[in-house]
């Protein structure tokens, strides 16, 4: 009989990440006619973000499209996806993908299918023109940034002030100067209207998007060989395709904002290297704190 997979994505349907996932779904459903079909139940209105990890683990949903960063409490090692610059297909070649997949199977009862939308990362956006120190690092001492668990420690270690606040407050906070900087991908940035206040973007970007498509392991094992083959094929294809697509979108979003007068400030030399090293270090340190078992092995595979 035809395999049916119930899926949920992490952003509202109209947002780019969900649209990207729906392309993957369309392709599977097209190629899988009579063999395997993905039935998309919806986004955060169906399963809120913080619960996605456990919903898949328990089998409440069969498949999800979600960033690894959303359920680090289940698989702390998921942080390698944002920390490492390695491309998804390179990780498949050097054995990194199989290693991390095994960890997800053990800890999250999850089978990884693809690391999608990987061709973009986070940027720092500031209200005032940021100054560089002598070694080329940004002067973080004047920055007040909205905190997220993902990068709080990182920016704090560089001397910035972090403020926790609900997403709905960010607009007013930027408007009123409670915060004067923001860290976020370029895609979707304009939708929040934040670009009106943050007129500077800082190069280089940091972290990489860590969006995964994964399945409940028991469901995966229950699929026919043919279904699994189709899913794997489409996953590998789409991983690369979505990488290029999002890299292009990232570039276009940034260009659009620059066309409207946004300025770019670039860190240079030793300071730039320090910035990137600190970003990676923050992630690896946290991983080690939570569970050191696989850290050594992963460091080699996810440089």
């Amino acid at each position: 009989a035809e395999d049916v997979i119930e899926a949920v994505h992490f952003t509202p349907t109209q947002v780019g990440f969900a649209q990207s996932f729906l392309k993957f779904v369309d392709r599977v459903n097209e190629r899988g006619k009579g063999v395997v079909q993905i039935n998309v139940r919806g986004g955060p209105e169906v399963v809120p973000n913080p619960q996605l990890g456990t919903a898949q683990q328990s089998g409440l949903i069969d498949m999800m499209n979600a960033p690894a960063g959303l359920y680090l409490e289940i698989v702390p090692e998921g942080e390698v996806f944002s920390a490492s610059a390695i491309k998804p297909w390179e990780a498949r070649e050097n054995g990194g993908w199989d290693a991390i997949d095994k960890i997800y199977q053990e800890k999250g009862n999850a089978k990884l299918l693809a690391h999608v939308d990987a061709g973009a990362g986070f940027w720092l956006w500031t209200v005032d023109e940021p100054k560089l120190t002598e070694d080329g690092l940004l002067d973080f001492s004047k920055l007040v940034i909205r905190a997220s668990p993902l990068y709080k420690q990182f920016f704090e270690s560089l001397g910035a002030q972090m403020i926790v606040q609900p997403a709905g407050d960010v607009y007013t906070s930027l408007e009123r100067g409670v915060i004067n900087a923001n860290a976020y991908p370029s895609i979707g940035y304009k939708a929040f209207g934040w670009d009106k206040f943050t007129r500077y973007r800082v190069e280089p970007g940091f972290f990489h998007l860590d969006v995964l498509i994964s399945m409940n392991l028991d469901k995966w094992n229950s699929l026919s060989d043919e279904s699994r083959k189709i899913l794997n094929e489409v996953a590998i294809e789409y991983e690369r395709e979505s990488y290029d697509a999002i890299a292009k979108e990232d570039e276009e979003s940034r260009a659009a904002m620059e066309a409207e007068g946004m300025k770019v400030v670039e860190m240079t030399g030793a300071g730039r290297d320090k910035f990137l090293a600190e970003a990676a270090k923050a992630s690896w340190d946290r991983m080690k704190d939570r569970d050191p078992t696989h850290v050594e092995e992963l460091r080699k595979l996810f440089p």
């Binding site: 007040v144 905190a147 709080k152 002030q161 972090m162 403020i163 926790v164 606040q165």
Partner: peptide
């Protein structure tokens, strides 16, 4: 704390 130029108590918010 924040307005007096000290570290914000981010842990306190959680």
């Amino acid at each position: 704390a924040r307005n007096l130029g000290m570290r914000a108590l981010t842990w306190a918010i959680s």
